[in-house]
C-alpha cells in the first residue's frame, strides 16, 4: 500500500445542497455563435491592446444584446475567448446589475426608483406599469415578468435624467416626464 495517499473518510462526504445564482438552469441550449458576432467580438477585443481582460464588459454587453441574457454557456464562451477562468466572468455578471442571467420580457420596462424620480411619482408609475403589464410579484432580483413573457417591469437606480422625473427606459430607449397617459402611449407603441 502507498502511504502518501490523500484519503478522506467516506463519512465526511458533504451533499451539495446549496445552489448559487447562475448554477441552476442546466437546460440552456448551447448557443450557435454566428460568424458576424464573433467578428464583432474580435473587433472589440482590439480596443484593449494592453489587456484582453478589459474586454469582459463589452463582450457581456454584446452577448446579452445577441442572446437576451448571459447564460452559463455565455460565461464559459467569453471566459475562453479572453483566456480567463469562468469565475472571472461570473463575478462580473453578478456584480453589474445590467447583466441578466435569466431571460426578461420582450419589452423591458425599467423605472427609476431614486429620490428625484420618487419625488416625481416614480413608485406610482412603476405600480401602474406592473398593473398594466400584468406582471406578478418581483423575483429575488426585483424583476417582475408577465406570464406570457412579453413584459418585464423592474425598478432601477438613478438614470441621470432627474430634471424630467419620472423617467423610464423601455429596452434601450429613454423616456422622460412619463405620466400614466404617456405610459399607455408607450405601451401601445412597443406592442405594435
Amino acid at each position: 500500500m502507498s502511504i502518501n495517499r490523500v484519503t478522506v473518510p467516506a463519512t465526511q462526504n458533504i451533499p451539495p445542497e446549496a445552489v448559487y445564482p447562475g448554477a441552476h438552469d442546466s437546460h440552456h441550449p448551447a448557443p450557435v455563435i454566428p460568424k458576424d458576432f464573433e467578428a464583432e467580438v474580435d473587433t472589440v477585443i482590439t480596443h484593449y491592446p494592453v489587456s484582453k481582460r478589459s474586454a469582459s464588459l463589452p463582450l457581456l454587453h454584446l452577448w446579452q444584446e445577441k442572446f437576451g441574457y448571459v447564460s452559463p454557456e455565455g460565461i464559459e464562451w467569453i471566459a475562453a475567448k479572453l483566456e480567463l477562468q469562468p469565475i472571472n466572468i461570473l463575478e462580473l455578471v453578478t456584480f453589474y446589475p445590467m447583466f441578466r442571467q435569466h431571460p426578461a420580457g420582450k419589452i423591458q420596462i425599467k423605472v427609476c426608483r431614486t429620490l428625484s424620480c420618487a419625488l416625481g411619482g416614480g413608485y406610482a408609475l412603476c405600480d401602474y406599469f406592473r398593473k398594466k403589464c400584468n406582471v406578478g410579484e418581483p423575483d429575488a432580483h426585483g424583476l417582475a415578468t408577465s406570464p406570457d413573457g412579453k413584459y418585464s417591469v423592474e425598478f432601477v437606480e438613478c438614470l441621470a435624467a432627474c430634471g424630467t422625473a419620472p423617467v423610464i427606459m423601455i429596452n434601450d430607449d429613454f423616456y422622460e416626464d412619463v405620466s400614466n397617459v404617456k405610459a399607455d402611449e408607450l405601451l401601445l407603441k412597443y406592442q405594435g
Binding site: 448559487y20 445564482p21 447562475g22 448554477a23 460565461i75 477562468q85 469565475i87 463575478e91 453578478t94 456584480f95
Partner: peptide, 17 residues
C-alpha cells in the same frame, strides 16, 4: 471569486469548477 455584491456578496467557485 465573489459573486453578487454589497451585503449579499458571496464567496463562490464557478459552477462545475
Amino acid at each position: 471569486g465573489f459573486i453578487d455584491r454589497g451585503s449579499h456578496t458571496t464567496l463562490a467557485v464557478h459552477p462545475g469548477k
